[in-house]
């Protein structure tokens, strides 16, 4: 596979390592009353859809950036690559407003 890094352009996927569903950006609050259940769901349950999947990849053998990649799990077609840092920052902003 080729991952089109937003800053570096196309790179072979062997430079990257895979973590999992981008929902892992959404770490729950430990203060919530339902924290144990929230963390259980966060850590263990996955949608695992046969179509589009937003997922986290790490450019381990490149610039060490974490990416959020939108990829079709059946065709492997990649339609979007974002910097995870930017995605997370936007999530934080959105949660403030």
């Amino acid at each position: 596979m080729i991952i089109n890094h937003p800053l570096l352009g196309p790179r072979d996927s062997s430079e990257f390592s895979y973590l999992g569903d981008a929902a892992l950006l959404n770490r729950p609050s430990a203060k919530s009353e339902t924290a144990t259940d929230d963390f259980y769901r966060y850590q263990y349950l996955r949608d695992n859809p046969p179509g589009e999947h937003r997922e986290l990849w790490y450019h381990e053998h490149g610039d060490r950036s974490w990416l959020v990649i939108t990829r079709n799990m059946t065709t492997h077609a990649i339609t979007k690559v974002e910097l995870a840092r930017d995605v997370k920052r936007a999530m934080i902003e959105a949660s403030k407003s």
């Binding site: 790490y58 381990e60 060490r64 950036s65 974490w66 910097l83 840092r85 920052r89 934080i92």
Partner: peptide
């Protein structure tokens, strides 16, 4: 890798 995950994905 774990620290970079925490830095970029949890506490950017």
């Amino acid at each position: 890798k774990h620290l970079e995950f925490a830095r970029q994905c949890l506490y950017p």
